[in-house]
Design a binder for these strands. Structure first.
Length: 574
RNA sequence: CGGGGCGUAGCGCAGCCUGGUAGCGCACUACACUGGGGGUGUAGUGGUCGCAGGUUCAAAUCCUGCCGUCCCGACCA
């Protein structure tokens, strides 16, 4: 590609509303432009990267045996009524009406449509297993789109859905997808990890997420230092390291603690360690009958609540939220800041680490007062003990090997075993060997194609711009002439090289604007992140050499003209 | 949806407090010089100051309402 025929619209300054580095660099490099919140256009340069990622995903999916199809973005409400999700999905599902006043939605995902297709097309267990995928636009009316194309409302996803006549078959395809995802992310050149995940609202049992490791990642992911254990922090188990305390012998005492509201203030006031204080949290959720109920959750002072675990420990199907100050005052006659487990009169779950405490400090359920020397068995009413906290670095690993460390990750892929959730709701059956009707088991497998582009930048950049892995770079090689308009030698050498490299199948960006200044061209190429660059000027040509530099290096190499083609070939197919 | 910030040229900003001619840098156009890391000069193009009301002789500036957008929290590829 000749730069003079291309759209290169780089900027020195990044727009004020771009906060994360990938967003800034994509705007500065001229890859994307915002149309509205969470809606972006991909300019030619950005689209080249996007297509690279898409091609890798498609090739590996095809290799896995999955079949590509394409389903519509706009989906009829009927199908969603059938699965029960028309009611379950919140405002994230963008609902629209057509001219006949019929209801539709913009598809945030395609379980309904694929299940509808398959129940009509597949009737026999002999046609299973089957796995179908598409690479297509999704729409989710996110509460808060952010971070450029990392979290948008309209985005591109590869979604696949598999169908099975047995759990073993589902596990088999799940394993194949796990390997396929590993191959895809390996080929993109990104550092990634697969971790155990919670299944969340999509439902189902077994699930893994694939994360690109980056400081700016939205998710915390947890690894064993010695073993292979890896999980999202939402899912990672905290090993019950100590037995529940049977009690200390301190005398329970109520102390006036004016102005003390936080754990930190309490520990300072009491001159005690944060690990000897109890944190009481009041949460609100709908119980089985649809009534709002408050619950007390007790954690050691230095630990944080894991809401997913707490929801499971309480046996609730609906999400829990922190109770409002009004709710708490109404139920307990006391404001947050002085809450504790003694005489709480709410269903109560105590974390393992908190249950191991004795003679601890906690709120007195009376404004401005706290208790010391509290003990569970002696002083508290009924409660259950469970794992409801987030693990912290240094916790023992659940697999018994080493301790846990925590890193940040960007979720770029997620695989689920759905089981029969959708096939039952939508009556997707096949006849088995005995001629009996049987619900198909399903798996679903997603990859955020547009997000991978942003994640790649988060993981690969420096002060000068993007550093693309070769596999997804918009161009492999940049040719930069010096004073081309003054030197026929430079001009002819560049033209000839551009022709040869292009003919050899390389993607070359030839900076052929005759009067462009060197500094500007080099800055652009570094910002855009082209991995290999060749600078050609009269000085080098007098000695029969050109300059090569890799985007990741800081020194030029002088390459003899007659060795250049071999040199480039080695660089690109190493 | 709760909390906070910001809307002035394509981008980055000043002007607003204390009402009176809309300004700077980058980018863009033309010409000249320059020519191995975003160069210099001269002359230009480009703005219903987010929108709608109100106050006033006069509003980018003061008041009210709305909209957009970004950041922090609960969701997700």
């Amino acid at each position: 590609m000749r730069a003079s025929q291309y759209l290169i619209t780089t900027k020195k300054e990044s727009p004020a509303d771009a906060e994360v580095i990938s967003h800034q660099l994509m705007l500065r490099a001229g890859m994307i432009r915002k149309v509205a919140a969470g809606l972006y256009s991909w300019l030619p340069l950005g689209l080249r990267v996007f297509r690279k990622v898409e091609a890798i995903v498609r090739q590996e999916m095809d290799k896995s045996g999955a079949l590509e199809l394409m389903m519509p973005v706009v989906q009829p409400a009927d199908l969603w009524e059938e699965s029960g999700r028309w009611g379950q999905f919140g405002p994230e599902l963008l609902r629209i009406k057509d001219r006949h006043d019929r209801e539709f939605c913009l598809g945030p995902t395609h379980e309904e449509v694929i299940t509808d297709i398959i129940r009509n097309e597949i009737n026999s267990y002999k046609q299973l297993p089957a796995n179908f995928y598409q690479i297509q636009t999704k729409f989710r009316d996110e509460r808060r789109p952010r971070f450029g194309v990392m979290r948008t409302r309209e985005f591109c996803m590869k979604d696949a859905y598999s169908f099975h006549s047995s759990a073993e078959s589902l596990q088999g395809t799940y394993d194949v997808m796990y390997e396929t995802y590993s191959a895809i992310f390996t080929r993109t050149g990104l550092v990634f990890r697969a971790v155990l995940a919670d299944t969340g609202s999509i439902g189902g049992s077994h699930s893994h997420e694939f994360h690109v490791l980056a400081e700016s990642g939205e998710d915390a992911i947890v690894f064993s230092t010695e073993g292979g254990y890896a999980a999202n922090i939402e899912k990672a188990s905290a090993v019950a390291s100590a037995q529940p305390s049977t009690g200390g012998n301190g005398e329970i005492t109520e102390l006036a603690t004016p102005g003390v509201h936080t754990i930190a203030e309490l520990c300072q006031f009491m001159d005690t360690d944060v690990t000897q204080a109890l944190k009481a949290l009041i949460v609100s959720a709908e119980d089985g009958e649809g009534q709002t109920q408050l619950y007390g959750l007790m954690l050691r002072g230095d630990h944080e609540l894991n809401e997913v675990k707490a929801q499971h420990a309480l046996g609730l199907s609906s999400e829990i939220t922190f109770a409002t100050e009004e709710q708490i005052k109404g139920a307990l006659n006391c404001a947050p800041g002085s809450l504790g487990p003694v005489n709480l009169n709410l269903p109560m779950v105590v974390d393992h680490s908190a249950a191991a405490l004795s003679d601890f400090v906690c709120g007195a359920n009376r404004d401005g007062y706290h208790l010391t020397n509290v003990n569970w068995v002696r002083d508290c009413e009924e409660f259950t003990v469970a794992d409801i906290r987030n693990v912290v670095a240094g916790d023992p690993s659940p697999d018994g090997k080493g301790v846990l460390e925590i890193k940040r990750g960007i979720e770029v892929g997620h695989i689920f075993q759905l089981g029969t959730k959708y096939s039952q709701a939508m009556k997707a059956t096949v006849l088995d060997e005995n001629g009996k009707e049987q619900f198909m088991s399903m798996g679903c497998y997603g990859i955020g194609v547009s997000r991978i582009v942003a994640a790649a930048i988060e993981q690969n950049h420096d002060g000068n711009g993007i550093i693309w892995p070769d596999a997804i770079a918009p161009f492999q090689i940049a040719i930069v002439p010096i004073n081309m308009h003054k030197s026929d030698n430079v001009n002819e050498t560049c033209e000839a090289l551009y022709q040869r490299l292009s003919d050899a199948g390389h993607e070359v960006l030839f900076m052929d604007e005759p009067k462009a200044r060197l500094g500007g061209m080099l800055a652009d190429i570094e910002l855009i992140g082209i991995p290999h660059r060749i600078v050609i000027g009269d000085r080098g040509l007098e000695d029969g050499t050109v300059e090569y530099r890799n985007r990741r290096e800081t020194e030029n190499q002088h390459i003899a003209m007659d060795k250049l083609d071999d040199f480039i070939r080695d660089k690109l197919f190493k």
